[in-house]
Simulated assay, not measured.
Amino acid sequence: MMPLRYIFSLALVCLHTAAFAAPCVEPPPDPANTYDAQHTYEKLLRDYPSIRIASAALPVDVNRLGDQVYAQYGDRCLKLDLYLPLAARADVGMPVVVLVHGGGWRAGFRAEFAPMAVRLAQRGYAAVTVSYRLSGEAPYPAAIHDVRAAVRWVRGHAGQYRLDPRRIALAGGSAGGQIASLAGVTGHLDRFDPGAADSAVSSAVQAVVNIDGLSEFTTEAALKYEDDPRKQPSAAGAWFGGRYAEKSALWAEASPIRYVRPGMPPMLFIASAQARFSAGREEMAARMAQAGVASSTLVLPDTPHSFWLFDPWLQPAVDAVVAFLNRQMPGKG
């Protein structure tokens, strides 16, 4: 007899096979793209000798549906991986967390968030890790468009996978934290979502989690690093297609803090001990409070950037995400 997980996975994959019939092409591997857990571990081990790469092994109570195509531009396909708790109640849709990887807008892999996705699934959340077009392929705001398309795919497939379309959160780390924040706080603006014109399915979300990502590009602290003249170009400069002096309007437009308003999604900030990576966080939280919007902040002491890739820090981050989302997206029934 085939294992239950295999039967469940096979049935779901068969349902999805015909969604995109055109040829599907992904760019070849980029040898310069080294933002992953192993390379980061090698850089951090000397200063943090007790860290361990967090496991992405699939436990028996979680099912993974990999390589689902959520958007296609010509023959270029964008994919996501869906992690589902097998013990979810059949009568209540699962809340969802869509996870956006980091890498300075020009690098990284969706597998970065597989360990967090597994642990979220074990806590009753469906978790989705997404790939998006990096700056070398498509500059700002393509990544925002892609993430909004991923949210629409999730909501559009809610019935198929027993997801709750009323409880979808966006989360990300580093550049992914900024992307998730901007995509999340602009859910009311179709200019960040070209697909809105052709779909009745919303790409708005109900909560946002920004893990060590910028909230404001134009502060002195952010510009010191993101517009460093010694870098030609800097990571942000490559994404925007120019330095701050050349593309100041885009640098400002991409700052999530500019979109604080009553009724925006609540936000959890999880920060490392490296303050430069979360520039604008405190001011954004203050503006949200003035607008009557809930926010919460967790700063993990003595942590490097990219702490979510490693134990012992991943679990406290997951615990904070679950506690926050349980408050802000409570279930029905």
Results as ranks from 00 to 15, higher is better:
M1I: 13
P3Y: 14
L4A: 14
L12P: 05
A19R: 14
P23Y: 06
C24G: 11
V25F: 03
E26W: 04
P27S: 07
P28G: 04
A32F: 05
N33H: 07
A37T: 08
L44Y: 12
S50Y: 09
I51H: 04
R52I: 06
A54V: 09
S55V: 06
A56N: 07
A57Y: 01
P59T: 01
L65Q: 07
Q68Y: 12
Q68G: 08
Q72W: 05
Y73M: 15
Y73S: 15
G74W: 13
L78D: 10
D81L: 06
L82G: 13
L99M: 13
G102P: 00
G103F: 02
G103E: 00
G104E: 06
R106M: 13
R110K: 15
A111K: 13
L120K: 11
L120N: 07
R123T: 03
R123E: 07
G124R: 11
A126F: 02
A127V: 00
A127E: 01
S135T: 05
E137Q: 09
P139V: 02
Y140W: 10
A142Q: 15
A142M: 14
H145S: 02
H145N: 06
R148S: 06
A150F: 00
W153N: 09
H157M: 02
R167A: 04
G173D: 11
S174F: 01
S174C: 11
A175E: 06
A180Y: 00
V185Q: 08
L189R: 13
G195F: 12
A196L: 11
A204T: 12
V205R: 08
V208Y: 05
I211D: 08
D212L: 04
S215G: 15
E216A: 07
K224T: 12
Y225K: 00
K231T: 09
Q232R: 15
P233F: 04
S234E: 00
A236D: 08
A236K: 14
A236N: 15
G237N: 08
G242D: 03
W251Q: 00
S255K: 02
V260E: 02
G263T: 07
M267H: 07
L268W: 02
A271R: 14
A273V: 09
A275H: 07
F277G: 03
F277Y: 15
R281K: 12
A285S: 14
R287A: 12
A291H: 06
S296W: 06
S296G: 10
T297P: 03
D302T: 09
T303S: 04
T303R: 00
P304E: 08
H305P: 10
S306K: 02
P316A: 04
P316R: 01
D319S: 09
V321C: 12
V321I: 15
L325M: 06
Q328A: 09
Q328I: 03
G333C: 09
